[in-house]
Design a protein around this nucleic acid. Structure first.
Lengths: 340, 340
DNA sequence: CTGAAAGCGCTTACAG
DNA sequence: CTGAAAGCGCTTACAG
């Protein structure tokens, strides 16, 4: 079928292009009769307006971008699901960019987005991101609204949706002590993130509360690579003084702990208690069922996208410095059962 | 900062807009010296071309759309990850649309895409889709390249990337018999899908091979809703003649089987063997570890996007009727252990 | 190697 | 209520 456009429609209707355009936009300037004629003919030819033309003209795209470290991860995929639902309601389309935890990808995505002309961005930083030059530059160049969630910046002027990392890390660690642990360890994947610092601080304060002042030797930095993590954890568990409990800052590490424990015939929870930040749907079905700190993924996505729309719609909201905290949920299961 | 565009650049350089445009596109028509001057000034002002203007002019968007039933699902999120990697390499952006297994959403997404002007589509049908009118209409209206994967149409003229559903369903069922099952049941979520039919057929043929001719009473249709599925499976397992083995066509159903079994104190695999199509990363860590038929998600994404690019780049490929089959992998674990 | 001009398909301020 | 005209910011066929 030959391509339709407004000029052809207008010609066939003996109307001006302006009138056709306004009719299709349901403008109050246009008479009901005319609207009807226009819409009917548009339907007949299955005419659809060209999005690029209107975006170019209006300077708005109705696209929003989501930049996340990975998608094959329960937390992030729930967030994307949630953002998608609310965006679809507002007739926004969702562009998804994955950084795979690489700063270099994050930078190149942001450079690319200066071209793509989205209306706004929802973002969670990759684990390598410790400085924010690329964010600041982007913001200066484009002045686009950006909302951060979970892995946020510490910069002012960027709204962020977070969870109560400090408190839940503190509670999780306290729980390990309560269940009989003497020497809990904290596993984390990257050093200087804002949220890692918060979780770290929660762990440390719970340690101190339980009389362990020297905490740093109980904190083990892991990597983004499964094999490296496996050997780090393997070495840790086969060392002379292995931990009797582990608090994992991310789900992946907890899973690797399970794998190593299985291979080493380490009994969870008898020899090793495990609790982890995790949104794993099958946490309760693992062997043993895994105690978790689960982040409110759906709500975080919802708040992010709602805030973004506020910023897109109201210019004055642009430099909002909102911080919205939604609490995580602790579920204690068999992996931290007191085995005395 | 004031917005830059080619007109301003051209003025400042005492060049024509055409020359600036060609220089930025690295056209061989333009001298090295001129290119250098243009690029330098563009950098100075941090000029980025307007994507909508060039898309409008060129009639190509460098966007591709992915339409899938859900994202919080290991199979689909791996596919998206894979598509994303290959698309990013080619500098295509990825629009993600979720249908949540609703035909009505699938239709509205496709209508919307007639406006969005993407260059191509990669798609997996929702479970409710049994007729293809909306696909045919879309194809007729837009003539856009579409590649289907996993949940494919049976229409000709649409290329599809699938896995060997019949064979792996047959093998999985044969395995249940081999492990001692007398009355295996097949659980599936929706009736008339192409892939469900194939899996169904594999199950049936394995039943017949084992002397069970009347197979339909061993096939239980489930729903898209967790609670409904829970009660269907609950009733099935508490009936007078419960199955001694279950072959689940999708991961969700297997997980629900685990949950019901736990609640009913049904021992897996002693009383009930379970095998399922699944890409669950933690299958080996479940209690008991779950036997799986895992689909080659990453490879399927890779083949889909590569084929799509072929179709986008070469017009004559448009009506390709390629069918690419990639084999699934069977992993037998404790959930189907012979317990004699 | 450079430039003038047309045009992609819309929307909107302005005029009537 | 309808229309003429300008313009969003590019690219490309054509001319020189």
């Amino acid at each position: 079928m030959e391509k339709m456009n407004m000029v052809k429609l207008a010609k066939e209707l003996n109307l001006s292009v302006s009138t056709v355009s306004k009719a299709l936009l349901d403008s109050h300037e246009i008479s009901a009769k005319t609207k009807e004629r226009v819409i009917e003919l548009a339907k007949k030819y299955n005419y659809k307006p060209n999005k690029f033309a209107s975006s170019l003209r209006k300077g708005k795209s109705k696209f929003i971008a989501v930049i996340i470290p990975e998608i094959n991860n329960n937390f992030f995929s729930i967030v994307v699901d949630s953002i998608n639902s609310f965006a679809a309601n507002k007739e926004y389309d969702l562009l998804v960019y994955l950084t795979h935890e690489k700063l270099i990808s994050e930078i190149s995505v942001m450079e690319h987005l200066e071209i793509s002309r989205v209306d706004g961005i929802i973002m969670s930083l990759c684990s390598q991101t410790k400085t924010y030059d690329h964010i600041i530059k982007f913001q200066k160049d484009t002045e686009l609204p950006i909302v951060f969630f979970d892995r946020v910046t510490t910069l002012e002027d960027f709204p962020r949706i977070i969870t109560n990392n400090y408190e839940s890390a503190f509670e999780a660690t306290m729980h390990l002590f309560k269940q009989g642990s003497k020497i809990p360890f904290y596993l984390y994947s990257s050093e200087l993130n804002y949220i890692n610092k918060e979780r770290h601080r929660g762990f440390r304060d719970a340690m101190i509360r339980n009389g362990i002042e020297e905490t740093e030797s109980h904190c083990v930095q892991c990597a983004d690579d499964w094999e490296i993590n496996y050997s780090i954890i393997y070495n840790l568990l086969s060392s002379e003084n292995p931990p009797d409990a582990i608090f994992a800052s991310i789900e992946k590490l907890a899973i690797t702990v399970y794998e190593v424990a299985k291979d080493l015939n380490f009994k969870i929870p008898q020899q090793l208690k495990v609790i982890s930040f995790s949104n794993l749907r099958t946490a309760a079905l693992l062997s043993p069922s895994l105690s978790t700190v689960s982040q409110p993924a759906f709500e975080m996505g919802e708040q992010s996208v709602k805030l973004l729309f506020k910023m897109i719609e109201k210019k004055f909201y642009k430099n909002a410095n909102d911080i919205i905290t939604i609490n995580s949920k602790l579920d204690f299961r068999d992996s931290t059962k007191n085995s005395k």
